[in-house]
Simulated scan of single mutants.
Amino acid sequence: MANPEMAGECFIETARLILRTVTPADVAGVASSWKLDEGPIPLPEAERVIQRMRANHAQNRPGKIVHLCLAILSKETNEFIGWCGLDHTQPADADPALFYLLKSDDWGKGLATEAARALLDYAFTRMELPSIHGGAAPENLASKRVMEKIGMKYVGLDEEGGYAFTISRKEFLDS
């Protein structure tokens, strides 16, 4: 059986969530939720987004993430409720950046923390990455708190004045 990580596929299950690779069958869900803060995108744009995500995922392998963008689905409703992943497309970054974005109806329920923790576990145990960094805008205290809850260490302010965090594989596995 093929290793799903090697084929660019990812499936992570938590108590309340499913984090998974997007497929072409998800085009309507991607169109309605890709830019949660701006509204729906046209279906042809959603198809291009899916193709780009899948091409990026195909480049990921243990020890190296280029870009991993996963749909966050509620296990209860099977609805797309957001996105999370790891981005290492910036050559200046020493390690991948953690990201997550939830529909506002799902804020304050601990779902971002649940997704982010599962993503770190995937990154460090299955993909064997050495470290991850993250950031939050200065006004986004909820996102800052998520990073604190998942064990990331605050390292100061980034170039834009936001909160910068990091965690190593060893720190995560020792926690």
Score class of each variant (00 low, 15 high):
1 M>S: 09
1 M>L: 02
1 M>Q: 00
2 A>I: 14
3 N>T: 12
3 N>G: 09
4 P>Q: 10
5 E>G: 13
6 M>G: 14
6 M>R: 14
9 E>Y: 05
10 C>Y: 15
11 F>H: 15
12 I>H: 05
13 E>M: 03
13 E>I: 09
13 E>Y: 06
14 T>E: 01
15 A>T: 14
15 A>P: 05
16 R>F: 06
17 L>K: 11
17 L>H: 11
18 I>Y: 04
19 L>E: 02
19 L>K: 03
21 T>F: 04
21 T>S: 15
23 T>R: 11
23 T>I: 10
23 T>G: 09
24 P>A: 00
24 P>F: 04
25 A>R: 02
25 A>G: 09
25 A>I: 00
26 D>M: 05
26 D>E: 09
29 G>S: 13
29 G>Q: 11
30 V>P: 03
30 V>W: 01
31 A>K: 02
32 S>A: 15
32 S>L: 15
33 S>D: 10
33 S>K: 08
33 S>A: 11
34 W>R: 02
35 K>E: 15
39 G>C: 04
39 G>K: 00
40 P>F: 07
40 P>W: 03
40 P>S: 12
41 I>F: 01
42 P>D: 08
42 P>V: 01
42 P>H: 06
44 P>V: 01
46 A>G: 08
46 A>H: 00
48 R>C: 00
49 V>S: 00
49 V>K: 03
53 M>N: 09
53 M>Y: 08
55 A>R: 09
55 A>E: 12
57 H>P: 02
59 Q>A: 12
60 N>L: 14
64 K>C: 14
66 V>W: 07
69 C>I: 09
71 A>N: 06
72 I>V: 09
73 L>D: 03
73 L>I: 08
80 F>E: 06
81 I>A: 05
82 G>N: 07
86 L>K: 04
88 H>C: 08
88 H>S: 10
89 T>P: 04
90 Q>F: 00
91 P>F: 01
92 A>Y: 07
94 A>D: 15
95 D>T: 13
96 P>C: 01
96 P>N: 05
97 A>G: 12
98 L>H: 12
100 Y>S: 07
100 Y>K: 03
101 L>W: 06
102 L>R: 01
103 K>T: 06
107 W>Q: 03
107 W>L: 01
108 G>L: 02
109 K>I: 15
111 L>V: 14
111 L>D: 12
114 E>F: 01
114 E>G: 00
114 E>I: 01
115 A>P: 09
115 A>F: 02
120 L>Q: 14
121 D>C: 11
122 Y>T: 10
124 F>N: 10
125 T>Q: 12
126 R>M: 13
129 L>K: 02
131 S>E: 10
131 S>D: 10
132 I>S: 05
132 I>N: 07
133 H>A: 06
133 H>T: 08
135 G>I: 05
135 G>K: 02
135 G>Q: 06
137 A>N: 04
137 A>Y: 04
138 P>K: 01
138 P>Q: 00
140 N>T: 04
142 A>D: 03
143 S>E: 04
145 R>H: 05
146 V>Y: 00
151 G>I: 13
155 V>L: 09
159 E>T: 13
159 E>F: 08
160 E>H: 07
161 G>K: 08
161 G>P: 12
162 G>C: 05
164 A>D: 12
164 A>R: 13
165 F>N: 02
167 I>E: 03
167 I>L: 08
169 R>H: 12
170 K>R: 15
174 D>V: 00
174 D>N: 08
175 S>C: 11
175 S>T: 14
175 S>G: 15
